[in-house]
Design a binder for these strands. Structure first.
Length: 571
RNA sequence: UGCCUCCUAGCACAAUUGGUAGUGCGCCUGAUUCUGGUUCAGGAGGUUCUAGGUUCGAGCCCUAGGGAGGCAGCCA
């Protein structure tokens, strides 16, 4: 009671216009409760772009104690299929929403839609048009100029009823006729220039089979489906704003439950090309490895990359909702991923670019186990044992022979801490004929076991390491942004958009050396490689014998940032 | 050039509906730390697209202009 806001969580963020509109509708008694829907077309895999609509529709319904429906907008059998239905359901569940019994299909409404179409014909509000697709397009006019009435516009109701019935009966070939709403060919809103309601398609539907050869167009199916389901708030992206007058027209003329469509701006994200068309091209041309390529922003790709679903939901609440065009910085998503994983991911040690270290005063052939904390942010995660021995691997860039002033890590004569283990001091650098460093000789201080010096002396760096004889060999895939420019769809002069691809978006490291506990990681699960980043055991290729990890995102790294800045200054 | 929507720090959004601008991310500084992570403290950064007008007072209302995006599938 002391602070009501504390219990509201996300909802206490200042209210966006959608929630305000719903508040108003409820207060005015326009609707008694809240029912929303997410209406995917089952013709592609979901991307992070779709999840904004899911989070808004499902999230708001949940918040208002209402109901949310998953409805497949399966009105175009030419492009749709069951495999997408299954994939979409799986992806939404992974995101964290459960629609329960409220799973619907526009195709289940085909009979009702047909009856309503007949009703509109009877009211003189719809007619069968014999014009070809080209003629219809020509007569629609342009953005500036009004359209022309179809020569078939004034057919009698009887003729229309008869023709429409025969369309349904399969008497006509694809494209021979359409049913159109009779509205206004001179409307400044092109959607109102006698929009097509039905087209003839002699194609089997993945659910309705061969029962139908006429299929409703989006505008004619969508609003009516909303109404049938009692959807109160049909929240969709901005590009449908010009369709709203038509949405309202159908509902009004039919006199059915008045669902309300409200539009919000879709979320554009820097460095991404969120569209099935572009993803498909990337896959077909081999720039990406399939719909679950970890560099893609499909939900399958994100999942395989190791992005937790909580991060995606958090991302959209951080972004907020507005009507203005936007371009969200991808680093906000990265922040959400790190923040989530920081709280939940167990810590492990893994060396990606190994440099051998021999502890000269550590007895040969011996080893011991040291206790390491699994997650400093979560005490309940407990501890584990990590083996230590005379020969170790450390990260190559944790050593510099001739370090600059602010480099705190290992260097000749310098003492650092090996995490959870000992202080070591570098005594000798061994190089090959090319002058390449191949090995370091060090000594350790047995008194610092566990990582602290009894005499209280400090070191400036703590480094991760792996015992050579106990290490597990693994492949690690370092993913980076797929594109090197913020807006990948903007082709460079004289080139195409794929010229924007980042050639270094995937770097495969092999062999990497990981602490032994990592071999038993479950495919798909995440952990932090200390000091490096968050990694995820690959859901396809990872096995105990041959571990494969994907880098989800690096840790924030102020040292790397400073380095980068220095390099840029030199230029 | 028609219609629709929009314009507030680098990015995304707020501003109790007319009372001289805040939040998160990003950036910078410092403290803490067995992760150059986390956490904490502090800081920089805005002519609220422009110009007029109404008003004691305008980010908000009015007028004009500018800019961005969407719309001409028998796709959704």
């Amino acid at each position: 009671m002391s602070n009501e806001n504390e219990h509201k969580g996300e909802a206490q963020k200042s209210r966006d216009f959608l929630r305000e509109e719903i508040d108003k509708d409820l207060a005015e008694g326009r609707y008694k409760g809240v029912i929303t829907r997410f209406p995917p077309e089952p013709n592609a895999y979901l991307t992070i772009g779709h999840t904004k609509a899911i989070c808004i529709n499902f999230g708001i319904a949940e918040e208002f104690g209402g109901q949310y429906n998953l409805r497949f907008d399966d009105t175009n059998p030419a492009k749709e299929g069951q495999e997408y239905v299954d994939a979409i359901k799986e992806d939404i569940r992974w995101l964290g929403f459960e629609w329960g019994e409220h799973e619907y299909y526009a195709s289940d409404y085909f009979p009702q839609l047909y009856q309503w179409a007949v009703a509109l014909i009877e009211k003189g509000l719809a007619y069968v048009d014999d014009q070809t697709a080209d003629e219809i397009r020509e007569n629609r006019g342009t953005l500036k100029d009004p359209g022309k009435d179809s020569p078939y516009r004034e057919r009698s109701i009887e003729d229309n009823l008869d023709l429409f019935a025969r369309m349904k009966a399969g008497e006509f070939s694809d494209g021979a006729k359409v049913l159109r709403a009779k509205i206004d060919m001179a409307s400044s809103n092109i959607n109102l220039r006698d929009p097509v309601m039905y087209r003839i398609l002699h194609i089997e539907h993945h659910r309705a089979g061969n029962e139908w050869c006429i299929y409703p167009i989006y505008d004619w199916a969508h609003g009516q489906s909303d109404s049938l389901e009692g959807v109160t708030h049909s929240m969709c992206s901005h590009e449908f704003i010009n369709n709203r007058p038509l949405y309202d027209w159908y509902i009004e003329k039919l006199g059915i439950f008045p669902s309300r469509q409200i539009e919000f701006a879709r979320g554009n994200i820097t460095y991404t090309a969120l569209s099935k068309r572009y993803d498909r091209q990337l896959i077909e041309e081999g720039h990406a490895d399939g719909w679950d390529d970890p560099r893609l922003y499909t939900l399958r790709g994100l999942r395989r990359r190791g992005c937790p679903p909580e991060a995606i939901r958090r991302f959209w609440t951080e972004v907020g909702i507005a009507r203005r065009p936007n371009n969200i910085d991808i680093s906000l998503l990265e922040f959400c991923i790190r923040d989530q994983l920081n709280k939940t991911a167990t810590r492990r040690m893994g060396v990606l670019d190994p440099l051998k270290v021999v502890i000269e005063n550590y007895p040969e052939g011996e080893s011991e186990e040291l206790q390491a904390i699994n997650n400093p942010e979560d005490e309940s995660a407990g501890t584990r044992a990590v083996p230590f021995s005379r020969e170790l691997y450390i990260e190559r860039d944790d050593f510099m022979e001739d370090p600059p002033r602010k480099f705190f890590r290992l260097a000749p004569g310098r003492e650092v801490r090996l995490r959870y283990a000992y202080f070591i001091t570098c005594t000798e650098v061994i190089k090959d004929d090319n002058g390449e460093i191949v090995e370091l000789r060090c000594t350790y201080d047995p008194a610092t076991r566990g990582g602290n010096a009894p005499d209280g002396r400090k070191v400036k760096a703590t480094m991760h390491w792996v015992s050579a004889q106990h290490a597990v060999e693994a492949e690690v895939r370092l993913y980076d942004r797929l594109f090197k420019v913020e807006n990948p769809l903007k082709a460079p002069e004289g080139g195409t958009w794929t010229d924007n691809l980042n050639p270094d978006s995937l770097q495969v490291l092999n062999p990497c050396y990981l602490e032994p506990s990592l071999a038993s990681t479950e495919p798909g699960s995440s952990c932090q490689f200390e000091r490096l980043g968050y990694f995820c055991a690959d859901s396809k290729d990872h096995t105990a014998e041959k571990p494969v990890f994907n880098r989800t995102v690096t840790l924030r790294d102020s040292w790397a940032r400073a380095q980068k800045q220095q390099q840029q200054q030199k230029k």
